[in-house]
């Protein structure tokens, strides 16, 4: 990426975000992706005068990661989305949908973007899962 990327540890995250807010950055979004088997990488994107700045955070796959909704309230939707799709937990969310933003219980039973978790569930308890879960786990990994 052409823009500046800063690596931050989970502990310093909220402080770093608050600093960007003071500097006048606008919150854009978060991008979450699977790092390796046990970690998830999250990119925090901020914008000031059409120039982007990214914070890169690497966290354990089960979290929890401190929420930045106290600094930027607008982050609550995307943090809930990540809770849904990656199974990561955020602590201190302003509005917590408890992993039901997109997917309710009884529907899609696994966190869809976690390829490793999906594979694990498939091996252990594949029989108890609905057909849809098998289908996307084969497609996703």
């Amino acid at each position: 990426m052409r823009d500046e990327v800063i690596s931050v540890s989970p502990d310093n995250l909220v402080g770093a975000v608050a600093k960007l807010k003071v500097e006048g950055y606008r919150f854009v979004t978060l991008s979450c992706m699977q790092g390796d088997v046990n970690t998830v990488v999250i990119l925090y994107h901020f914008d000031k005068d059409l120039v982007l700045k990214h914070l890169r955070v690497r966290v354990p796959a089960d979290g929890p990661l401190p929420s930045i909704t106290a600094v930027y309230f607008a982050a609550f939707l995307v943090e809930n989305e990540i809770q849904d799709l990656f199974g990561l937990r955020f602590s201190g969310l302003a509005v917590d949908y408890e992993r039901t933003l997109y997917l309710d219980g009884g529907e899609v039973k696994v966190t869809p973007f976690c390829k490793y978790t999906v594979a694990k569930i498939q091996g252990d308890e594949a029989k108890s899962l609905p057909a849809s879960a098998d289908r996307h786990s084969t497609g996703g990994s």
């Binding site: 854009v28 979450c32 699977q34 607008a74 609550f76 939707l77 995307v78």
Partner: peptide
């Protein structure tokens, strides 16, 4: 990974 952040997602707050 393909991540899409659409404007309405930002405007819901």
């Amino acid at each position: 990974r393909l991540r899409i952040r659409t404007p309405t997602f930002a405007n819901i707050p």
